[in-house]
Amino acid sequence: MRRFGFLLFLSLAQAQVVLPFWHTAGPPGDRVLLEAVQSFNESQKAYRIEPRYVGDYREAGVKLLSALRSGGAPALFHGELSFLARLAQEGVALPLDPYLQGLPKDLYPRALEAGGVKGKTYGLPLGLSVPALYYNKDAFRAKGLKAPRTWKEVEEAAARLSGRTTKGLVISTDIWSFNAIVMSLGGSLVRGNLPNFTSKEAVEALEMLYRLVQKGYAQARNLAEAPFAVADFLRTKAFMGLAPTTALPVVLAQTSLPFGVGLAPLPREQEGAVPLSGAVLTVLKGAGPEGARGAVAFWLHFLEPKRQAAWVRTTWYLPLRREAERELSDFLKDPERAQVFAQAEVARPWSQDPEMVVWYGFLEEALERSLKQGVRPREALEEAQRKALAVEGR
């Protein structure tokens, strides 16, 4: 009888589908995500998810590409939105539409749209964010300034806040930050599956940033200098900065701030939009149909309203279900936070073009040459456009 029990246990263990899961959730959100994984594993016997932290979005992408070439890629991957499109194009990610029956009726429509590529769903959103214009409330109050509502007001505030050793604004030369401004002006960095780096809106965006730097009202930082950009703001060397809603909880988890932090919606033209960014749960082709079913089952577990509420409070990601808002009524009572989160109504995925992963290096190089080396904006963007088109054989 004991032998029969052991064989039954062994059979059940062998039937369980084990799903290695590479994720990018660091503190403070990792606690909520790992709790969800543990809870899911304990709630059923068909699947077991094995999480492993593999760094930030870019680090994780590099590790996955290496694993795909050499073997050892996971079943599930927590990847950034722009990376998803490339995985789909290369046939590495599985389309999930056949497994998406019985989804919650209160799921935000934009949620699944964010994980779509050319009409198919390849990613299940875990965390989606919108941008915020962060500002030093104490410095603004001292100058009698209000939170900027337009890019013109951003320029005016930056001018008034700048001094001999301080800058009104810290600028990041990464593609996400620049794209956010271009989208807010009603533009796009991609048009007809080709780079659109010299569009009217892109030129206008870079000319504004160039003007601020040249006048001494802004400090430009590249991606490698991102810690310095944060330090500029924390040490009151700069008084405004653009970042996702999720940036502030990460900072607050590591340090206390000596001043009040304000946040405002991204200034936006009437025809403009704001970028919906973040990461999605992707099923890689080696996982097969059972892996896809397990991923969807875990995602639905993660979407439970109370867990969603805990995730939003901890990370400042957008709630993915309307029912979760009932649990967040006090959190969303803050007027500044409510206004920033309300941008979800005018948000769209910031990048769903597979080619962008290949092109963005040329654009970031152009931004740095213009903002840190003084190359004229149009000249820098035209060079990036030529390099990107050359890759496409144009």
Rank of each mutant, 00 (worst) to 15 (best):
E156V: 10
E155A: 14
G55C: 11
K45F: 10
F40W: 12
V54C: 01
Y108P: 00
D97Y: 00
L68F: 11
N41P: 03
D56V: 11
P98M: 12
K105C: 03
Y135W: 15
S82G: 00
L84N: 06
L96T: 02
N41R: 11
G102H: 04
A147D: 01
Q44S: 13
E90T: 10
D106V: 08
A132W: 06
N136A: 07
L68M: 10
G72A: 12
S39I: 10
G91V: 02
R69A: 15
P148F: 02
G115T: 04
A142E: 15
Y99K: 08
G55A: 12
P51G: 09
G115K: 02
Y53C: 03
E156M: 09
A111E: 05
V154D: 04
S82M: 15
E80Q: 12
V130N: 00
P74F: 09
S70N: 09
R52Y: 02
Y122M: 07
Y47W: 13
V154N: 02
K137L: 15
L124G: 06
F140E: 02
Q44H: 11
P98H: 03
R86I: 00
G72D: 06
Y47G: 00
A157Y: 14
E90Q: 14
A157M: 07
A158H: 08
R141G: 08
Q89P: 00
E50H: 01
K152L: 13
K45Q: 15
R110Q: 14
E90G: 01
L124Y: 10
